[in-house]
Nucleic acid binder design. Structure first.
Length: 432
RNA sequence: GCCCCCAUCGUCUAGCUCGGCCUAGGACAUCAGAUUUUCAUUCUGAAGACCGGGGUUCAAAUCCCCGUGGGGGUGCCA
């Protein structure tokens, strides 16, 4: 790979909406290639559409990019601040008589009957006939440049060597190549990656669920998991290991390996990947991420008992697929008015016998000095034996009593964590 | 309509560049079993695909053509 260090790629969002999943994916591949080649990633804001561009969108996009771990080396540059340059370049083309004026607009005259070849790094050779292309506006009547033109001027002046973007730009490419030629410039390499589609194969839209990056942030997806998922859409690690950290991927990623097939967004696989990240994340890190959510749920105040929270997280990190899922799962550790599963309650607390059994257990628990998982289990099993029943007969109802649910972490760990006082209080409440 | 991209299990894909090693491999999801106090984790197993039709060839998932299907473009949007 000659001149690796000379690679310059760019990510160029327009602030006309929130950062879209597809854009995030494009950003990822540019970022990876920049890091892989030890090149530069340039951030450019394409805000020539005065009507639709909004400051709030820009702020959100920048914030989301950072959250995703995408850092850039230069920029952001704003097209809206470079209007004079586009005009100047367009006038150059006008002077060469390759364009004409229509009112204030400058329009490029397309020469018919020519074949334009693109050597795409993903798709290979693609040919276009200029007969299919109409004359192209370079500068609109209001003086602002049209996308395809601004793009060419910027990519050249910013020294972009590789343009990695979505397939939806394939048919823009011959137009842009004409502009490069008109300006006497050399076109960069192009790599068009297939678009990400919705579950049913149609265009990914709100109809399929959330399409904005911030919504995934809210739902409790980890940025690395999201990016890991995007990476898997169209790129396969050679060793078959699908959980790939961004840093490691940057070491292995090459444009040549991008697949040429459009992929569908699959929530199930994303959730699996997210779960893998949660499971392997140190509890301390998870707590930092979870703190705000716990506060919002009213589980903790500003003074948080970190040790307590850490133990809870440790118990539930194999059970939550998203950060948000920790909230319902851990309710009984933070509140006394946790929800009780009605069906389960009926199942275990209808006959008098099981109530009597629980009362025996409760008495024994009250007498315990050390309220530890190990001793709790011993006690429980001894009581069961004395009563001549299976330990499960005590375990299940106790679980309902202290947590309201039939599911959850190991019962004895839960009891130890809750502490003697709460466990007994909850047992007595339900036995009443 | 016209132009362009694409086509392997339900989904993401490996294999296709240089045809035989493919009775098509892996992952998610699904189902079954093991472990376990439940759930989850973990482990084992099952089921599941080369879009259709023509060629080329001794031989095609792999090459060619035609259909079909999906996607994109065809804006003084980006």
């Amino acid at each position: 790979m000659e001149n690796k260090s000379k690679v310059r790629v760019r990510f160029a969002p327009s602030p006309t909406g929130y950062l879209h999943l597809g854009s995030a994916r494009t950003a990822l591949f540019n970022w990876l290639y920049a890091r892989y080649t030890n090149g530069k990633l340039i951030l450019r804001i394409e805000d020539t559409d005065k009507e639709r561009s909004k400051k709030e969108f820009l702020d959100e996009i920048l914030e989301d990019l950072k959250w995703l771990g995408m850092d850039w080396d230069e920029g952001p540059f704003f097209q809206s601040k470079r209007l004079d340059i586009y005009k100047e370049k367009a006038e150059l083309i006008l002077k060469k008589k390759l364009a004409y004026k229509e009112g204030n607009a400058i329009i490029y005259k397309v020469e018919k009957g020519k074949v334009i070849k693109i050597n795409d790094l993903v798709h290979g050779e693609i040919e276009f006939n200029t007969d299919e292309i109409k004359d192209q506006v370079l500068i609109k009547s209001d003086g602002s440049p049209v996308y395809n033109f601004a793009c060419v001027v910027d990519d050249d002046s910013m020294g972009i060597t590789h343009i990695i973007r979505g397939d939806d730009h394939i048919s823009n490419t011959p137009k842009q190549i004409m502009f490069y030629e008109a300006l006497g410039l050399k076109a960069p390499f192009f790599a068009h990656m297939p678009l990400m589609m919705g579950k049913d194969g149609s265009k990914l839209s709100k109809r399929h669920g959330c399409v904005a990056v911030f919504e995934y942030k809210e739902q409790g997806f980890l940025p690395e998991a999201l990016m890991n998922y995007f990476l898997l859409l169209g790129w396969t690690p050679k060793d078959g290991k699908e959980i790939v950290k961004l840093k490691d991927a940057a070491r292995k990623f090459d444009i040549k390996d991008i697949g040429s097939v459009q992929a569908r967004f699959d929530m199930d696989k994303l959730r699996w990947i997210n779960a893998e990240y949660i499971k392997n994340e140190p509890s301390k890190m998870l707590f930092a991420l979870l703190k705000e959510r716990f506060k919002k749920a009213g589980y903790v105040k500003d003074t948080v008992k970190e040790d307590y929270a850490l133990k809870i997280i440790e118990l539930y990190k194999t059970r939550a697929k998203t950060l948000e899922e920790f909230i319902p799962l851990t309710e009984c550790f933070f509140r006394d008015d946790y929800k009780v599963d009605e069906k389960a309650y009926k199942k275990y607390f209808t006959d008098a016998e099981s109530k009597r059994n629980l009362e025996v257990l409760n008495k024994r628990l009250k007498a315990m000095k050390e309220f530890k998982a190990k001793t709790l289990e011993d006690t429980c099993r001894v009581v069961a034996e004395e009563l001549g029943i299976k330990a499960a007969k005590l375990i299940h109802p106790t679980r309902i009593a202290i947590s309201g649910s039939t599911k959850g972490a190991g019962l004895f760990e839960m009891m130890e964590l809750l502490g003697k006082e709460k466990v007994i209080k909850r047992l007595e409440k339900i036995l009443k």
